[in-house]
């Protein structure tokens, strides 16, 4: 249920390849561990990631639509999306136009999402609300509903570039929106909290929330993802601690 993420301007082909290796095989001494769900990169690294992950179950997700600010024209956003999909992205993580949303121009935001969705073709669309900029839980709920109505396959909290990123209350509001949308339409929408989830313990709290809001079926990578980079190593550390009974050091887990 993990999307391993690297979204730095200083990213290199080498770094992306390392991350992909970690995605396929998280820890050498635990060969039975499953691969992560996806690797999340900028569009220009999609082909690199695609190649590094070939033959594995790991998907490639690309951020698009002038990530992280979304401050560009629809035309540019659509071309970027199209290009990422053509490069082989299985999933597109788009950002909404928060400025327009906060200005009350909901139709604009909605139309934009619908247009990007059309451009995605077979690729899954995750819509990033950037909840840290939406200011109230009411807005977050409104944006969630709007994104789902406009065609999102997933809704996602944050870019990771803005604080606060994912929080438990924000995620609960979005999970509740997904549940109500399901009851209203019969359609299942996925959830991805991203940024700020660094420890296994916190991740567990998110999973409890998913379990108690959306039940069994959402507890799968098809419907729930963590967007995180450092969480993986803490998970590994806790797994090894469970197996050995000894508290672990980060020195024994690769930083990729």
């Amino acid at each position: 249920m993990l999307d391993l993420t690297t979204l730095d301007a200083k990213d290199t082909d080498g770094k992306v390849k390392q991350l992909c290796r970690k995605a396929i095989r998280p820890h050498d001494s635990l060969p039975d561990l499953p691969s992560v769900a996806a690797v999340c990169v900028y569009p220009n690294f999609v082909s690199t990631a695609k190649e590094a992950l070939s033959g594995s179950s790991v998907k490639v997700a690309a951020v698009a639509t002038a990530f992280p600010s979304g401050m560009s024209t629809l035309k540019v956003k659509l071309r970027e999306t199209k290009w990422a999909v053509n490069q082989g992205a299985d999933e597109i993580d788009m950002v909404i136009s928060r400025g327009k949303f906060l200005a009350g121009e909901y139709d604009f935001v909605s139309d934009e999402i619908a247009a990007v969705k059309e451009e995605c073709g077979p690729a899954h669309l995750k819509v990033i609300l950037e909840t840290g900029e939406l200011s109230t839980l009411d807005n977050i709920r409104k944006a969630s509903d709007l994104a789902m109505e406009a065609g999102a396959d997933f809704i996602k909290t944050s870019t990771g570039k803005i604080q606060p990123a994912a929080t438990l209350p924000v995620t609960l509001v979005m999970l509740e929106a997904i549940r109500d949308f399901y009851y209203r339409t019969g359609k299942k929408i996925g959830m991805k909290p991203a940024g700020g989830i660094a420890t296994a313990k916190l991740a567990l709290q998110y999973l409890v929330m998913v379990r108690e809001t959306l039940g069994q079926e959402w507890l799968s990578p098809d419907w729930f993802r963590f967007g995180a980079s450092v969480l993986a190593n803490d998970l590994l550390r806790q797994i090894v601690k469970e197996q050995t009974g000894v508290y672990q050091s980060f020195d024994y887990f690769t930083k990729d």
Binding site: Y182, Y183, T185, R211, E212, G215, E217
Partner: peptide, 14 residues
């Protein structure tokens, strides 16, 4: 009919 049959499954193996 479909909508009223919708039910979230809380009997989980988790």
């Amino acid at each position: 009919e479909i909508k009223s049959a919708l039910k979230i499954n809380f009997s989980t193996d988790w």
